[in-house]
Design a protein around this nucleic acid. Sequence first.
DNA 1: TAATTTTATGAAAACGTTTTCATTTTATAG
DNA 2: CTATAAAATGAAAACGTTTTCATAAAATTA
Lengths: 342, 342
Amino acid sequence: MNKDKKPQQNTILDIAEALKLSPATISRALNNHPHVKEKTKSDVLKMAAQLGYRRNQMASGLRSNKTHTVGLIVPRISMFFHAEVITTIQNALHKHGYNLIICQSNDVLSMEEELADILYASRVDALIVACTLQTTDFSHFDKLVSSGIPVIFYDRVPLDTYPATFIKGDDFRGGYLATCHLIETGSQKIAHISGKLSSNLYQDRTAGFRKAMEQHQLPVNADWVFHQELTHENAKDAMAKMFSGAVVPDALFSANDVTAIAALEFAKENGIQVPRDLKIIGYSNDPRTSIITPALSTIEQYPAKVGQKIVAVLIEQLKSGEREVGQKPYVIPVDLIRRMSS
Amino acid sequence: MNKDKKPQQNTILDIAEALKLSPATISRALNNHPHVKEKTKSDVLKMAAQLGYRRNQMASGLRSNKTHTVGLIVPRISMFFHAEVITTIQNALHKHGYNLIICQSNDVLSMEEELADILYASRVDALIVACTLQTTDFSHFDKLVSSGIPVIFYDRVPLDTYPATFIKGDDFRGGYLATCHLIETGSQKIAHISGKLSSNLYQDRTAGFRKAMEQHQLPVNADWVFHQELTHENAKDAMAKMFSGAVVPDALFSANDVTAIAALEFAKENGIQVPRDLKIIGYSNDPRTSIITPALSTIEQYPAKVGQKIVAVLIEQLKSGEREVGQKPYVIPVDLIRRMSS
DNA sequence: TAATTTTATGAAAACGTTTTCATTTTATAG
DNA sequence: CTATAAAATGAAAACGTTTTCATAAAATTA
């Protein structure tokens, strides 16, 4: 059964032998080292192609201490935004000859810590991270950072003081745009369901919300602002609380789409007409928002742009060997997507 | 800026030195080779932990020709079913000390071919594949198979003759269940939007559909059976075609959820009452089906079970060194999810 | 106790690259 | 046409493991 007709993997020595050259020269030619004749280079490349040579990553990595592998830690690949970012990253990295190891933290901190450890141990050349919502201490990335391994945070990023690179959406502007939109379409009593303020995302989105309210001289009702885990249930509870009061909101800015959808469900179940009685806007442009009835307004975060920026910055750092520590965060613009719910 | 205070990675030699043993013994202890004293083993383990030793995968891989890495080729990680399967696979593999490299073919064959090549070149220990819908020739996996690398296909699998392992949902039963359900709730004029018959998925789902119709002595209207790419647009076109006729269907079995959603949209736009005038059932239990109004009936495929089975089979093969060539496909059961659309 | 088997350890080669250092070849200047 | 610099190549060591083969220590048998 086990035919041991293993198709021979050719090595650098096979090329050397075929061309009567030393392995050293072959290696140099393949890495187009400056000190190798053009003719030789092309000969080697041709012969390599002919023999179907593929560099042995492990041998190469062992010697040069480079794995040509990038690690990625993400809360969940099934979240639309992340799936898009990952796809872009992967395609782009692939063009530069890098592999990507994707890991999911399931949004739990201890998992994130473990993964950072594992990826450090497997000697990734760089690490890309979208943190857990609870991550406020980043010391589990210290090992990587102090080893000179580029670490890039996106979406959920640490404090500005942490010595790494940040790439984020313009959450402040997103919150501001969403709120202004609600105001401009005639709402005044605006509620806001947000996530825990331990994450920069919600700090900024909420700040944008407050800024817009203030600018339009509208009061923020403290009973209508929630900072809690952004789950379906929590959102429904929040809605129930608000709509049991004597005076009820006429608009809601939800800091993600899941909760916006939950709010819309609550509205439907309780005979609240959307958008007539209640306008709703979410955040992220999840595909579900365009399918639900009425279609939800939301904020587009351009995941592909985020992914491209990440890779551009990363390749730059890998090439130059320099981490731009203390770099201001790169901010990717956002846009308002107006649909039927507002 | 570039503090070269690289935290020392300890090697097997450091342990050897600390314990006055040879590196060979350390290696054996760490791999708990039978011929090493219990005392020594525990000493080594303790010292390894103390020094924070982590095996250098590249050195290990180079020597032993094992990468402890499994490759995965999937059409798109953003598809709910695949995202779930991947997550399960990853967590399970992780427990067994394997890394996972996830690659997306974007459902294009040439990409799949290229990825198979790349993963072969990077010496993965095993490969897991959900094929493209157009993949009918599988020779790009030959290299892997004949090198003795376990190759496991799931969801979209090759012909039974291909020498690899298959794990699939019970698509025939799914099609059968869906159709029976429509019939039992009173429908007689049942339409069927299916994918191209180049994929086993749709062959089987369609076969299940036909079987159910036949069993209930209902005629299949050839104008109401579509085999085309299962896109939103195509589905709407198909609906338009059917509902422009003199006699129209009273139920639809769509072979995936995207097209079921499209059909539902068409119905809403054209004043067709669901489920009164038209019952609809989809396939896969995509999260969107439960959010749309009315919620769509569909078929649950238990992605977590699929993932678990894959890893169980894989680990078995990696351990035993035996590929169970010619193995009958493993079939994971499916279930009907009844919602408001039927 | 000596002879033999079993168990535990060590020395050294091997895996396929990259890279330092030395050497040869080629180009440039005097 | 030398003398020198520059360019191209080769020899060999190194990366950190695993593994074969040999050997030493312990356990078993005669």
